[in-house]
Amino acid sequence: MMHPPLESQASPHDFLHPKHWKPALGYANGVVAKGRMVFLGGHIGWNGQQEFETDNFVEQIEQTLKNIVEVLKEAQAKPEHLVRLTWYITDKREYLANLREIGRVYKRVLGAHFPAMAMVQVVALIEDRAKVEIEATAVLPE
């Protein structure tokens, strides 16, 4: 079943969620989109000079999301154009222990827009200080 975007979302996409399933919390089960596609490689929680300003898990997530928004701007895209995020985290327990704070950071940076998402715990990331890496896909309306 296709659900239109929520009124609080200015998304040009349709979200997919079978009506007999429990509501998805914090992500869309699927997204249908048409337009110009923008693919972002994995971004981590360092600044534009490739320097870490913190080793705090939540602060690295915030910086990572801000980095994604900055790169999206280069394509004249906004967070509401995101259709998919793939998160790689180094510590599932740290993520779960900070869900509320992560949710606040997410909404502050990306708004109340929840594309299709996946999260994977990994042993390590290429940058030793990185605690999160996020790949993103956006679709700009035609």
Rank of each mutant, 00 (worst) to 15 (best):
I61V: 14
R100F: 10
Q63W: 02
Y88G: 06
D91I: 00
A75I: 00
A124L: 07
D55W: 01
Y27F: 15
F57Q: 03
V58A: 10
R108D: 13
V31E: 02
F39T: 11
I102V: 13
Q76R: 08
T86S: 07
K66N: 03
A136M: 05
V109Q: 08
P12V: 07
V139H: 03
K66A: 08
T64W: 07
K92T: 13
Y88A: 11
V132K: 05
L40T: 12
L6H: 15
L6I: 06
F15S: 04
T90S: 09
T137R: 07
E70I: 08
K131C: 09
P4K: 11
V71N: 09
D55F: 03
I68Y: 08
A77N: 09
V58Q: 03
L25H: 05
L65D: 09
A112M: 07
V132A: 07
D14M: 10
N29A: 09
L25F: 09
T86K: 04
A138E: 06
V109N: 09
F39W: 13
G111T: 05
I61G: 09
L16H: 10
L25W: 02
L140K: 15
V105E: 04
L72N: 01
V83N: 08
Y95K: 02
I89L: 13
N98S: 09
T54D: 10
G41T: 13
K73R: 15
